[in-house]
Design a protein around this nucleic acid. Structure first.
Lengths: 341, 341
DNA sequence: CTGAAAGCGCTTACAG
DNA sequence: CTGAAAGCGCTTACAG
């Protein structure tokens, strides 16, 4: 594992170390003669510059970090993909990290990014911004928030405005005759958890529905908590006739639990999920969802970050959300007419 | 963004640079006096050592790379999670990359890992091992293959033996009376694509079923190709009565296409998918799947890699697979009795 | 256009 | 236990 260094390349090419470096890093002041020889030598030796050494001098790594909250949440997997595709054209490489919805894992990864001196980072943050998030910002490392934000940390961010989607969902359910709507909330330590809950409460008022606090159960955005919350809701003395889940993993947990209890989604319990996961359209009945564009979110996040790296201070972006009605929130007769299967 | 360096820490603590370094890197030869002062100074300045500089000297980064084929494939998202959890206890941090089933993207990421001089890498490889894969191996960078292998590249690997699962699936379908089984194959440039296809052909023979080559359509392991392949199969003059898909994204494409054509999964076309994705159990009818343990695979991959890093040469591991029968491959009456929903 | 030299931020024998 | 110094592999003013 004795690496080939630029010294070896220079020696083989018969030029000085400085000239070799200039050719390799594309500096204009080089003769075509030396360009040819150095390039050939580098190729012959399969030389890969040591990024450590390079960025120790130039303070540029051409690497961006992306921290998602949970890779197993399809929304974030899609987001990772979208960010990556957008970054691909810019010449940056993305290092992906998974917080697994845990602040501790988030901090470990962010510390690693700081240590590696990445050029910038996109993060869907956990927690209150005390730990590594503040290190990131205090060091002036270009940072952009995506999907979520942290109060008091002012970096550009791209988020979804959950309100229209949730308002439409509650209104729609009310129109179907539902008076008691159960809500599986996200954690209130996370901005999206708070915003969506507030939007739900607001929407209930607007629609004049039952505001029984027992109808809201708090989960942690992961599958098991969605199942547990559903169980609690269904065991209520006066259980809800419809359930809204604040993200897709919790919705999956809800689907599993509703079936486990021998109830039918739609006729017995209507269900609407936040996040438009492709498989949700394939469930029977197909799930109604609150949709927002993960492609836009990823692309804009990269855009914003590149601007921050360039020293600009771009404005934050808020993306729209909206309800897509499918069978899971329609009455049985309607389901029958719509269903092909 | 003027970083705090170890020099600043040493100055504030009133010791030499060397002493500060020894304290910070846990070298035993330090007095408790200087340990206290340096630690305090580092804390006060929020000092984070520059990993570039550190590993330039010590040739250790404590970072591992993990390259998955496709983050949006839930199997690989689960794998990423499993690897990460296993690595967490070892003090290594995982840098995750996504090849998006493209050799070019794989190579870009692997080159970045080489440049960053990570301590080792776990990869689910694409291609023939000519590009960055061979760079990795030739440089002696500790490498382990996971899920897939590359012919002629001899690194330790942990894979699934697809044969028992596929053999059981074909046998099961034959028992249900199916004579013409469609197969949505993975690309033959990928080891799992080849192995599963060979296992399918073998299983057909064993079961004495129709070996019409038109019944096999090759996809690329991604969703759209699964839908396209299903369309071709269903448009056959003598279409299959059952379909087996070689991975889960292609199975999702198959589900969507079967429904789009107004057919019922189970009664009209039986369906079995490779990979046990949690949502598959929630479809109606629930999908029969070929199961293998992604947790074991992730954990073992990390184990193997740590051994390679320690200079050992661990043996490769092959994990079992097996069929889980659900409604999608059972006759209608059986479906009716089993279905709760 | 080119080379010698300084320096990026660390670690680590080498003396003491 | 501690400090001065060399060196990891690069880049980049500085002269020429």
């Amino acid at each position: 594992m004795t690496s080939v260094t630029i010294k070896d390349v220079a020696a083989l090419a018969g030029v000085s170390l400085a000239t070799a470096s200039r050719v390799l890093s594309g500096h204009p002041a080089t003769s075509s003669e030396s360009r040819a020889r150095v390039t050939a030598a580098a190729e012959q030796l399969d030389f890969r510059p040591n990024a450590q050494a390079r960025s120790l001098r130039s303070a540029k790594t051409h690497v961006l970090g992306l921290l998602v909250s949970d890779v197993r949440n399809p929304f974030f997997a899609d987001l990772a993909h979208a960010v990556e595709q957008a970054a691909l054209e810019t010449g940056y490489v993305i290092l992906l990290g998974n917080a697994n919805e845990l602040e501790d894992q988030q901090n470990r990864f962010l510390d690693t990014l700081i240590d590696q001196r990445v050029d910038g980072v996109i993060v869907a943050p956990q927690g209150d911004g005390q730990g590594s998030i503040s290190s990131l910002v205090n060091r002036g490392i270009p940072t952009v928030f995506v999907d979520r934000t942290v109060d008091g940390v002012s970096v550009p961010c791209v988020t979804t405005d959950s309100r229209p989607g949730i308002s439409q969902a509650v209104k729609h359910l009310a129109e179907q005759g539902h008076r008691r709507i159960g809500y599986i909330a996200g954690p209130q330590s996370i901005s999206t958890g708070r915003e969506r809950y507030a939007a739900f409460v607001e929407a209930l008022k607007e629609a004049g529905l039952d505001q029984d606090p027992a109808l809201t159960v708090f989960g942690d955005f992961q599958l098991e908590s969605g199942a547990a919350a559903t169980e609690r809701l269904l065991q209520l003395e006066d259980p809800p006739t419809a359930i809204l889940a604040a993200d897709s993993p919790m919705a999956v947990g809800a689907v599993a639990k509703i079936r486990e209890r021998g109830l039918r989604i739609g006729p017995d319990v209507a269900l609407v999920a936040f996040d438009n996961i492709n498989l949700f359209a394939l469930l029977s009945p197909a799930l109604s969802v609150i949709d927002h564009s993960v492609e836009d979110m990823g692309r804009i996040a990269v855009d914003l970050l590149l601007k921050v790296i360039d020293g600009e201070d771009p404005a934050s972006v808020s993306l729209p959300s909206g309800l897509i009605i499918r069978e899971s929130s329609l009455p049985p007769h309607s389901v029958n007419t719509q269903r092909k299967n």
